[in-house]
Amino acid sequence: MKVAIVTGASSGIGQAAAIQIAEREVGVILTYGKNPQGALDTVATIEINGGTAVSLPLDVGDSSTFPAFRTSMAGVLHDTFGRDTFDFLVNNAGLSRTSLIADTSEELFDELMRVLLKGPFFLTQTLLPLLADHGAIVNTSSNSTTVGMEPGYSVYASMKGGLDVLTRYMAKEFSTRGIRVNAVSPGATRTRLADDAFTRFPEVIPALAARTALGRVGEPDDVGMVIATLLSEQSRWVTAQNLDVSGGFNL
């Protein structure tokens, strides 16, 4: 059985991606930060549908914890899947904070940098020895770097822009092992990001839907299916790409 690692899979896009990946008969090791119950819900959904999943805690914003996570992950690979390696990595865990450039503190800048750019860089580096040749990586970026630019997202989008560049460099460097690396850039998607903003401010949804060519905001499954497809054999000739998954936002 092939195995995927999906970070930030206790809700939203990560949860949807984990479920979609498992539906393709891939085992899943999923991580969570502050929402252990959500991780258990993801595991339960996968198991109800006949799949296999295990959840592990991971603070993507603290790279000093990555070696211990690799050790725990290696134990799960061996005990649950009978494997010493895994096949797919989805760098999805993230957070969103908004602040105008004039008001942004170094603390906020550093927090977003640690989670959105440093985290994926060093987690991938840490797990790379366990990633099987001819595997695949998908990084979750954002269309805030292009058509979704809004005041207040300068730091968030800058880190995602860095992740876009990192995606291409990963694709170049890892190609010698046959490992494909791509990114997805969601638009407005109904997740818990930004402190569950859609639930707290439902009035913004009609305006976002009006700016979207397909007439609604995105659902986690819309993006999760694309992530699962990029990992699959159907995308075996796709690498170094960043797919806009926004339903045509600001088209």
Rank of each mutant, 00 (worst) to 15 (best):
residue 31 T to G: 08
residue 72 S to R: 00
residue 94 G to D: 04
residue 232 S to C: 03
residue 186 P to Y: 06
residue 55 S to Q: 14
residue 160 K to M: 07
residue 5 I to P: 03
residue 191 T to R: 03
residue 60 V to W: 05
residue 137 I to P: 00
residue 147 V to H: 11
residue 203 E to A: 11
residue 151 P to K: 00
residue 139 N to V: 11
residue 116 L to S: 02
residue 103 D to T: 13
residue 130 L to K: 11
residue 98 T to G: 01
residue 44 A to K: 13
residue 120 P to W: 07
residue 122 F to I: 10
residue 55 S to Y: 08
residue 205 I to Q: 06
residue 6 V to S: 03
residue 182 N to E: 07
residue 159 M to A: 15
residue 92 N to E: 05
residue 116 L to W: 02
residue 166 L to E: 03
residue 159 M to E: 15
residue 73 M to I: 03
residue 132 A to E: 12
residue 94 G to E: 06
residue 124 T to F: 00
residue 174 F to Y: 15
residue 6 V to K: 02
residue 6 V to Y: 06
residue 177 R to P: 04
residue 211 R to H: 06
residue 55 S to D: 15
residue 59 D to I: 09
residue 93 A to H: 05
residue 8 G to A: 04
residue 90 V to Q: 07
residue 207 A to S: 14
residue 214 L to E: 09
residue 142 S to C: 09
residue 180 R to L: 04
residue 104 T to I: 13
residue 237 W to G: 00
residue 10 S to A: 15
residue 45 T to V: 15
residue 216 R to L: 07
residue 138 V to D: 11
residue 98 T to P: 01
residue 66 F to A: 10
residue 64 S to I: 13
residue 187 G to W: 04
residue 4 A to C: 04
residue 143 N to M: 14
residue 174 F to N: 07
residue 177 R to C: 05
residue 180 R to F: 06
residue 242 N to G: 07
residue 1 M to T: 00
residue 82 G to T: 10
residue 193 L to Q: 05
residue 220 P to R: 09
residue 42 T to Q: 08
residue 232 S to P: 04
residue 148 G to Y: 03
